[in-house]
Simulated assay, not measured.
Amino acid sequence: MIVTVDHFNPTPKFEQIAAIVRDQIRRGELRPLMPIPSENQMVEMHGVARDTARAAARLLAKEGWVFTIQGRGTFVARREDWPSE
């Protein structure tokens, strides 16, 4: 299922993208240690600026859903590292 940003929604686009990725992780579409879409892929999929895609990835990392390896990409964190809800 492809879900994309609602450009008419007042919620910031980076928060919408982060919510989409969180849902994909929870549903198991993105599993631990799998890469999440790259910034370029997010730009293409959601029609947003690169800075917006970067902000979404930073938010997910800050929350503990993903981690980044410089030069390699951003990956889903291990389940035990996910934030409690």
Rank of each mutant, 00 (worst) to 15 (best):
L30K: 12
L33D: 15
E85N: 12
E44F: 12
T11E: 09
G73Q: 06
K13Q: 11
L59F: 08
R27Y: 09
V5Y: 01
A57R: 15
K62E: 15
L33C: 09
E63V: 07
Q16N: 01
P10H: 02
A49G: 15
G28M: 08
D81C: 10
P35N: 12
V3S: 07
D6N: 15
A18F: 00
L33R: 13
A49F: 03
G71E: 06
Q70P: 07
H46Q: 10
R79D: 02
A19Q: 09
E85C: 07
D23Y: 05
P35I: 04
T68H: 05
T68E: 09
A55R: 14
S84I: 11
V48A: 05
Q16P: 01
M1Y: 01
R72I: 08
D81K: 11
V43I: 14
W82E: 06
E63R: 08
V66W: 00
I17M: 04
D81P: 00
N40F: 10
P12W: 03
R72L: 14
A56F: 05
N9E: 11
G47T: 09
I25M: 03
D23M: 11
S38N: 11
Q70S: 13
G71D: 04
R79A: 11
E80Y: 06
D23V: 03
G47Y: 09
R72Q: 13
R79M: 02
I69T: 12
M42C: 12
A55F: 04
L60T: 04
R22C: 10
R58I: 10
R58D: 14
R54H: 12
P12K: 13
N9A: 07
R58M: 12
W65E: 08
D23H: 10
T74Y: 00
Q24N: 09
T11I: 14
D6G: 03
E80T: 05
T74K: 00
V3L: 06
R72C: 05
I36M: 14
N9W: 02
Q70M: 10
L60K: 02
I2M: 02
